[in-house]
Design a protein around this nucleic acid. Structure first.
Lengths: 163, 163
DNA sequence: TCTCTTATCGCAAGTATTCGCAGGAGCGTC
DNA sequence: GACGCTCCTGCGAATACTTGCGATAAGAGA
């Protein structure tokens, strides 16, 4: 598994390897996809009830800074996913229905190098969340163009936007 | 001023024009740059002390949905700026020191059309916040490469990253 | 101008997230 | 294997933000 790599990364960043941190890593890996803190905490506490919520929050923040987890903001709520170094990717989130999609790995490479040259800013593609409208909501918008848009969680289903 | 345009936009979205909403618009315009909710609320309440914080939060969320304000997440904190339709732009935020920079208008147009073709996702460039390292922090990182990175608010000054 | 509908507001209570601190535990060193 | 330096953790409290609800007022129509 990847857990060993992550453990090594924590150590080499000068941080300590604690059971709590391993539990969080393992929970995110096991749950798969983009997981809200709430679910990470639930899983961790299943195995170690004394672990505090504050610790989970601190841990995901740390792991995210170390690039061991990716944070994806979906409508203001933070979700986390395990980082796969081989398939670093950013995300697209629909402003309307909050459906989340992966950007293909490498998709932002051009932008990245252009930014670096033009401005000196080093883009981290795996931390990027692009905001806009998914195909379905875009279609909705065009039809129901009589006044105002419906807000919040959408009514349509979205087959499987690979959570 | 732009306020009249914004007022018209609110009406034509089927929403009501209220003094509170105008106060929020005016506050963001007057304060300039990227303003945290806290400062918007302070300014609004200077002029109308009875306006509630909840109203300010609801209002910025609404104005943001109507594209009359842009939301910029800086280290997890929402900031807002007045939208200038002539100069729609995204942002770059340094993960390390939270310095914020404008992306030149039009910079994401290529990506936008490529995404639309490839995936059907309609990118809203003015809602995009790119995450990475600013030139200064990138330099720091390379020097102080002895173990761990310093975290949180940075020590160096950043002349004026056009807040 | 007056009436009516209902979006919006202020208030108060709720939920989510963060902070400060004191004890506990990694892990480098001897 | 034990010691000691600090980083981490759990706990309780604080802060930040959201929600529900009855009262109010914006704006359409008469």
């Amino acid at each position: 598994m990847q857990q060993e790599l992550a453990a090594a990364a924590i150590r080499s960043a000068g941080r300590r390897l604690t059971p709590q941190r391993m539990l969080v890593l393992e929970a995110v890996g096991a749950l798969g996809g983009h997981v809200p803190v709430e679910r990470i905490a639930a899983r961790v506490q299943e195995q170690a009830p004394q672990v505090d919520l504050a610790t989970v929050y601190r841990t995901v923040a740390l792991l995210s800074r170390l690039h061991l987890l990716n944070e994806v903001q979906v409508g203001g709520v933070s979700h986390y996913e395990a980082t796969d170094p081989a398939r670093r990717h950013g995300h697209m989130v629909c402003e309307h229905c909050s459906a989340t999609f992966h950007l293909p790995p490498g998709y932002l490479d051009g932008l990245r190098s252009r930014l670096l040259t033009d401005t000196g800013f080093e883009l981290h593609p795996e931390h990027v969340t692009l905001s806009g409208l998914c195909p379905e909501c875009r279609a909705d918008e065009q039809h129901s163009h009589s006044g105002h848009t419906h807000t919040g969680a959408s009514s349509h289903s979205h087959p499987n936007p690979e959570a």
